[in-house]
Design a protein around this nucleic acid. Structure first.
Lengths: 190, 190, 190, 190
DNA sequence: TATGAATGAGTCTTCATTCAT
DNA sequence: GATGAATGAAGACTCATTCAT
């Protein structure tokens, strides 16, 4: 007598699946092109599930964006770890940047978040975190001003890559960072 | 008894009005949120007018974006003139950047074009022009690598401003540019 | 205070209703004049229902046409049964034709299918079935050529009736069929 | 000072051009797909001309259909001439039919008129003329009943050709006509 | 008179959202 | 609680028709 039942029995997992699907779609087709139906299809859940767990599509979109933010955050955590281990020198930073540029998915995630952030005040606060954290890593060694400038430059490098077909070369990046941060990448906090 | 009756009779002006309205809306709500209805309302023309002059909404969007591009281009022309007159020194560049950051409208125009460019290959080519022209102005004095790095940094400054609520201060910008371009702002080409 | 609220909950029945409504309208106003709105009104369902069940209006039209085809087919089945029972003589054929001419609805269905078939290759194949089946019934007794000619004549009779206000009289039909099929309506296959 | 003037100076010729263009388009895309714009483009006249000369699109369509009717009529005139010269024998009729079947344009014109006639009472009267005239040619030799039956058969042949990919062969047609009209092509009026 | 700009009604289609089951 | 049927508001687009020029 037991019908196939209503599928899963783990609401939290379903939520997660739906958010993941939405996040993927945001990267693929853009924030404004995601729909309930698209998400349901991608997540392999019935249409109703996408409205059951999220009051509104905007709500769902927003949570998906947050999901992407945490993804970006994880990357930043990795960067911090490396910088702490090996020192925040231009050479190490450059290596990390070149690595990041090679990861198309991460690049897209960042792009999606930043682009969406321009229009969405709530999201903007979240997006700011990236540069703030990055700046934070560099402040101890270079002081606030130089650290900020370096973070700004790195942001520029990311955008440049999205618009141009070829990546900036490593020595250009390293030289620029060296110029911005100054030669004395040691003590002084300016 | 007098109905509003038919309107103007100046097609070229109407086209321009519609494009202008569309461009404004792109800056305000983003490319993907503009609709015929929105544009018509903003331009103060009947819905039909927006389809009379443009075969498709994409067509209209595209022309509005081009309109913004020419706006950006005009700014860049101004920058070139100043650089030629006063020299492409970090100080002059900084002054120009600060000026640009104060012009919210121009900033938005640039943002809209660049953001749209990420997804639209045709537009991407156009958007590349900005950094290419900017780089071009600096190459004679600093060589290709440093010029490129400076343009990338400036792009980063623009994005930073869009995401953060406060502008970067002038000395930060100037110092960074000085570091990137090198102190010897003479003729060395790398 | 009670709004009409949501309707039925029987998808299959709704599909059928919509198709039936569309088929009726095709007969009344022609294939190219049917619209979603018209169909919805006729079927007594909201506009959205017509797009929920059919991806595209063409899809809906096509299914409605198929519906008519099966209707025509059922008629042809009846004809076959009679011919098998009573023999495919001109007299019996005439009786069946006169019967068919009296059924305005069936006549219209056939007309709609044939007319639509002229422009639609896919439908043309279906429409050919009518004459092919009819021919098939007569081949055993009269051979392919005479059978074909008779089917062609019968088709002509149907069209004649649609264009003229009065029906052809039975003796005319029977005499013509006799002439076409030959006197020896017995054995021989040509 | 003389501007290129408003183009033509022969209203009647323009009317004719427009009607001809409309008639062509009816044959190509079907009655319901013709639009003012399409007609204007085909005729090489400005949009306004199509509304200047015809009160309504339906009016224009109707006149175009009449134009096709006269075209069909001209064909029938040719047929009459031949029948008067060479006698209305099955052999001659068959020859004429085979000829007609080879003329795709004429076939389409006939189809368009007849198809449109089913729905349009006014046009139906006009369309009836074809079979009435054809019948008329045969009445003197075969009497009303047989003449009518032959005309009906011929109509069937035309439709058959539109639906099937291959033409009926000449001997089939001739044999059928012989059967319908009887061997004694003398004066008996039934 | 001739032209084509102007307008809005109407077309197909998509989808967020609601809610019966 | 889970599902997907139901609904209508919007969106893009087409075009007959009107009418200023």
């Amino acid at each position: 007598m037991s019908e196939p039942s209503r599928r899963r029995r783990d609401p939290e997992a379903r939520r997660a699946e739906i958010i993941t699907a939405a996040a993927e779609l945001i990267l693929e087709v853009g924030v404004s092109a995601v729909t309930h139906r698209l998400i349901a299809a991608r997540a392999g859940v019935p249409l109703g599930a996408t409205t059951q767990y999220f009051a509104t599509l905007d709500d769902l979109r927003s949570q998906a964006l947050h999901h992407l933010v945490t993804e970006v955050d994880a990357h930043v955590d990795g960067i911090r770890a490396t910088l702490e281990q090996r020192g925040a020198t231009p050479a190490v930073l450059t290596e990390l940047i070149v690595q990041a540029l090679a990861d198309a998915r991460a690049l897209e995630a960042d792009r999606a978040v930043v682009t969406a952030a321009v229009d969405d005040p709530q999201l903007r606060a979240i997006a700011r975190r990236w540069s703030e954290r990055m700046t934070g890593f560099l402040v101890p060694a270079y002081g606030l001003e130089r650290a900020t400038a370096a973070a700004v430059f790195i942001d520029g490098v990311l955008w440049h890559t999205r618009i141009h077909d070829q990546t900036l070369n490593a020595s250009l990046i390293e030289n620029a960072l060296t110029g911005i941060l100054g030669t004395h990448s040691t003590t002084t906090s300016d």
